Amino acid sequence: MDVFMKGLSKAKEGVVAAAEKTKQGVAEAAGKTKEGVLYVGSKTKEGVVHGVATVAEKTKEQVTNVGGAVVTGVTAVAQKTVEGAGSIAAATGFVKKDQLGKNEEGAPQEGILEDMPVDPDNEAYEMPSEEGYQDYEPEA
């Protein structure tokens, strides 16, 4: 019985440690998101679009440190934060509304985080759909 109880105690310690790591990862992701939003706020009209992409990228980098179902929630929060940063930029006159959601080359930025393969159960990952990809044929 002692062996059984000791095993359960060790398992509990492992769960607590994993929860603490997840909590730490979420806190880091939130900190990076805040950094990115402050970065966007300090940019001029020309830099705002690039700044919004930076927020998304920093958040995406930190999301990889967070495991399990938390990833889905962090990704949703990050996307809403990026959308909010863009709205703030438009409201303050840093950028025109028609410039939001495009990178410096004018290509749409939507789907940055949505296409990231995420499995809350950590069982399997699927690649994003290939609808947006084109076949590449090298020139002879």
Rank of each mutant, 00 (worst) to 15 (best):
P117Q: 12
G7V: 14
P128R: 12
A89K: 08
A124C: 10
Q134T: 13
P120M: 10
P120E: 08
V26L: 09
K21V: 08
V66A: 07
S129K: 05
E110L: 01
K6E: 04
G7K: 01
A90W: 12
K43W: 12
P128N: 14
P117H: 04
V26N: 00
G86S: 11
L113H: 05
M127L: 10
A30Y: 15
T44R: 02
T72V: 14
T44E: 00
V48G: 01
E13V: 07
N103P: 03
I88V: 06
E123T: 11
E46D: 05
M127C: 02
A140E: 11
K12A: 06
T72W: 03
K21G: 00
E105S: 10
Q134F: 03
A56G: 03
A27S: 14
G93R: 08
V55M: 15
D115R: 11
Y125K: 07
G86I: 05
T75R: 06
E131H: 13
F4A: 02
D119E: 11
G73F: 15
S42V: 06
G51T: 10
I88H: 04
L100D: 10
A89P: 07
N122P: 10
P138C: 03
T59L: 05
L100S: 11
F4C: 04
H50G: 09
Q79M: 03
E57I: 02
A76F: 02
T22Y: 15
P120Y: 12
M5L: 03
G111E: 07
V66C: 06
P120I: 13
Y133P: 08
D115T: 10
V66H: 04
A78M: 14
G41L: 07
A124N: 08
E83A: 12
E46G: 04
A140S: 13
E131L: 05
N103R: 11
P117L: 07
A107G: 06
A76P: 02
K80A: 07
A29H: 03
G25N: 06
F4Y: 13
K21D: 01
Q109K: 08
Y133W: 09
Y136E: 11
Y133L: 13
K23M: 15
V16H: 11
K58F: 02
L38G: 08
T64E: 05
T72S: 01
Y125R: 03
S9A: 04
T22H: 02
E104C: 00
T81Q: 03
Y133M: 13
V55D: 01
V82A: 03
E139T: 03
G93I: 11
K58G: 00
S42W: 15
G132Y: 14
A30R: 05
G73H: 10
K60I: 10
Y125T: 13
V77W: 15
Q109G: 02
V95D: 07
V48C: 08
L100P: 01
F94W: 11
E131R: 03
E57T: 10
D135Y: 14
V37P: 00
V77E: 01
T59P: 01
D135I: 14
G132H: 09
I88T: 05
D119R: 13
K60C: 07
A19R: 04
N122I: 08
V3E: 01
V63M: 03
A91F: 15
G86R: 14
G47M: 12
G93A: 00
E28G: 09
K45N: 02
Y136R: 15
G47W: 06
E28L: 05
P128C: 12
E61A: 13
T64R: 12
Q79I: 09
D2F: 13
E110Y: 13
V74Q: 02
E61H: 10
A124K: 08
K10M: 02
V55N: 01
A11C: 00
A56F: 15
T59A: 14
F4S: 00
